[in-house]
Each structure stands twice: as structure tokens, then as C-alpha cells.
Design a protein around this nucleic acid. Sequence first.
DNA 1: AAATATTGAATTGTGTCCAAAGTGATTCTA
DNA 2: TAGAATCACTTTGGACACAATTCAATATTT
Lengths: 250, 250
Amino acid sequence: MGKRASAELGSARADEGLGGNGRDEAIYRNLFVAIVENHLAPGTKLPEDTLAETYGVSRTSIRKVLQRLAHERLVDVRLNRGASVAQPSVGEARDIFSARRIIECGAIPQVVAKATPTALETLRDLVRREHAAQDRGDWRESIYLSGAFHVELMRLSGNETLTDFLTQLVSRSSLVIATYGSPQTASCRHSEHDDVIEIIAGGDVDGATRWMDRHLRDVERTVVLVEEEPAPSDLKKILEEVAQRRPKLR
Amino acid sequence: MGKRASAELGSARADEGLGGNGRDEAIYRNLFVAIVENHLAPGTKLPEDTLAETYGVSRTSIRKVLQRLAHERLVDVRLNRGASVAQPSVGEARDIFSARRIIECGAIPQVVAKATPTALETLRDLVRREHAAQDRGDWRESIYLSGAFHVELMRLSGNETLTDFLTQLVSRSSLVIATYGSPQTASCRHSEHDDVIEIIAGGDVDGATRWMDRHLRDVERTVVLVEEEPAPSDLKKILEEVAQRRPKLR
DNA sequence: AAATATTGAATTGTGTCCAAAGTGATTCTA
DNA sequence: TAGAATCACTTTGGACACAATTCAATATTT
């Protein structure tokens, strides 16, 4: 398995800040990956009973995990209606990418300042794994590793708070990608991650900042181009339009 | 009570994203304010039983609230040891202010772009209340309103995600202020909030950005000047130094 | 026949109980 | 008397049971 970098999305501060048993942590991680890697489509209901017997624990533990995921905006929990995988709105998607541009570009100076050769090698390893996943068509792990790259880059800044924020933004980005945009369009094209490593290695702050801004805009453009999907209230209109195009059944 | 702006810190998305009864929400808000306004000193233990009977609910509800506060980093929850008001480390404090500089300065362009006259008037009202609180020596509400100002400013950007992040950062800043730095030093001096409103009203993006950067550095400097409080590992050294200066007891 | 009211199953919210871990004081020993 | 081990007490963690709400399907009425 080689010297796999500690590139784990989420649970950045698992054993640290908040309480959390080892078992709860495992359940959280399992659900987290299932959502971020899009094994569970946005909108999928997550009944407490089902999860409880799946993991062999009581609903109490499940509830805790779901609440955590809800706070990270990966699941929606509505009163008396249970939890379901979040489906970000178009506005949310825009906010997420806007926030990423501000945070990731803003942190570049500190990232460049603290980038050591060994840290850069870790990043290169991550990109290698990303390419390997792409080459064998594993777009799920490809998306995952692409996100992990951004998080690890931020981790170089030494700012744990910002790293936590970005972890959340990257996970939600995966949800956005899952909700809007075709699978391969989003992940496979944008793997110019190699480039930024060298720019950073050269100490070019402005260049790295420009690269990051452009990169994030590219990703956003290939993904959120769906302007506004029909609100439920427009259902009638939709059906009328369909009736228009097919005046008679059969 | 006048036309009080909807300037509430925390619970920004109370009834929205995550589940949350009205009662739970009230408990959360009460604890939140108690912590942010420094009625509860950092490190104060928060036993579930006590809180449960205080609010007349069972421990179940309390645990949910504590978990939420833990995720917002306002309380520390350690396994089998319960919850206590968080005491940010110096490193955390630095991260928080660094993150605030990046986020608040980075969002200025959008804030300026979306600033309407009525929105600016809301901000002015907030500053008026802040000054009133200062003048009557109510430094708790002064700190609270000072934070609320920054959050409302960010809200103008229209980016809910960033506003949520900043809400968390501002709350934690209050904890930092409570932990390091004398009460009046921190809050009372820096109320040049009037200035930035006019800069924004004039559409001066660069000026507003520079103002914000300087403002945040000022606040940080007056607060975190305590360099490094003795790490537990340095306890021995500290005691030896003291012994050096007082060779004999009594 | 369509719209509305009702009823029942399924799912969530909340309170309580029991086991496990931590905390502090007491006692025993050297 | 100082130190260490033990024991009782307090607090937390997890599971269960019951109450409340939602959702869907059926029945009723116009």
C-alpha cells in the first residue's frame, strides 16, 4: 500500500474536540464516505431504524451521527421527518464555490510560506493516486482524492480552523457535483493539480493565487451550469409543456 | 424598543437546516448567549443533570444542545468527562483571527457590491446600539453587538455559508477575548465601526478591505498579546524559576 | 366521480433506566 | 506520617419504551 499520505477527508478532529467513541466514529466515517463518494444519491432518506440495525447499534448512536452530518450540511434533518442526504440548491452551490475561492485563494500566502519539500512530496503522491484512479475509471475515488488534495493543500497553511471549514466545503462540493452535472464531466477533466504544486514550490504566491481562482471557476462552470431546476410549484406548467409536445397519448 | 435590527448571533439557520424544536432552540440560544457574553467563564463545567433541571427537560435534550455547541467549538466535550466551556489555545486564537482576516476581507467586494442604503441603515442602527451599550458601561452587550456588526456586514454579501462560518468565528473570538486580555481593553476601544460603513457606502472596495484588515489586526493585538501561557510540560521549569527567585519558603 | 375526512401503520421525539467510567475520600500499610 | 490502594459516590454513555407526529391508503360525502 506504499506510504499512503494521511489524506482523509472529514473527521479531521475525530478523537479530539468533540466526544466520540471509536464505534460512533466508524459509523460516521462510513456514512460520510457513502455520501461524499455518491453511493447515496442526494435526497435519499436515512431512516434511523434501518441504520441502527445495519450497524448493530441503537437509534441513540445513529441519531448522534446524523446530527453531526446535519451540522456539516451533508444531510438535511427536518422536524419529525427524519434525515436525508442533502441536495444543495443552486444558490447554495454558488455560495460554496464562492466561499472556496475566498478561502483557498486567501490562504495561499501562508501555504506557500509553509510549504516544505516533504509536504510537497505528500501532495505529489496524492496527485499520483488521483491519476491512477482516473486512469482505471474509478471516478468515485477520483472525486474523493481530488477533494483530499485541496484539503491537504490547506492543511499546509497550519490553520486548523480553515482546514475544517474547507473540509466541509469540499464535501459539500462533492454533493453539488452529484446533484448537478454529469459524472465524468466534473471530475475527470480537471486534474491539473500537478501544476499548482510546482508553482507553489517556486514560491510564486501571485501565480498560485491566480491558478487557484481559475481552477475553482473552471470546476464550478463545468458543474453548476444547470441554471435552475424546476421548482415543485411549477409542476403543473411542466406537465402542460409535455402535453403540448405530445398532444395525444399514444 | 424601536426598530431593532434582526441582529442575532448564532442560530442563523435555526428553523431551517437542522432539526430543532422551539424549546431546544431556546435552550441552545440561552447557553450560547451565556457563553459568548462571558457569563460562563471558559473552562466552566456544564453537567448534564444541572442543565436538565435548570431548563426543566431531560438529559436527552441537553445532550443534543451540548453536541451542537461542541460542533461549533464553543464547548469541549471529552469522552466520559462531560462538557465544559471551551478555552481556546493561543494557536487556536491565532487561527481564528487569521481566518477572519481572510474571510472578512475576501468578502468585501461582494459586500460593497450588494450594499443598499437600507442595509447600511441597519448597520448604522447596530453601531448606535453598540455605542449606547459602551456609554453605559455594558461591556457584555458591547462585545455582543460588536460581533453582531461583523456578522451583519457579512450577511450583506448574500453568502449564507460564509455568514455561518463567520458567526462561528465571531463567537469563538468572544471566547478568546474572555480567555486572554482584560475585559475593557478588548471591546471598548475599537468601535470605529462607523468608519467602515461610510467607506462601503462610497463604494471603495480597496479602502474597505484595508480598513478591515487593519481593524482585525488591531483587535487581535489588543487581545492575544499574551504570548504563550505555560504549557503543562513547562510546569517544572516554571516552578524551578520561581524557586530560583525565592530560594527559601517563608 | 372528485374532493375531503378518517383511520392506521410507520417513523421520529422524548423521558427514563441501567451499566460503565471517572472522581474523591477513606483506610491501610510501610 | 507519607504514599498507595480500595471503595463509595457522582456523572456520563447507550439502549429501551412510550408518546406524538407524519404519511398514505381507505372510506365517506356531495
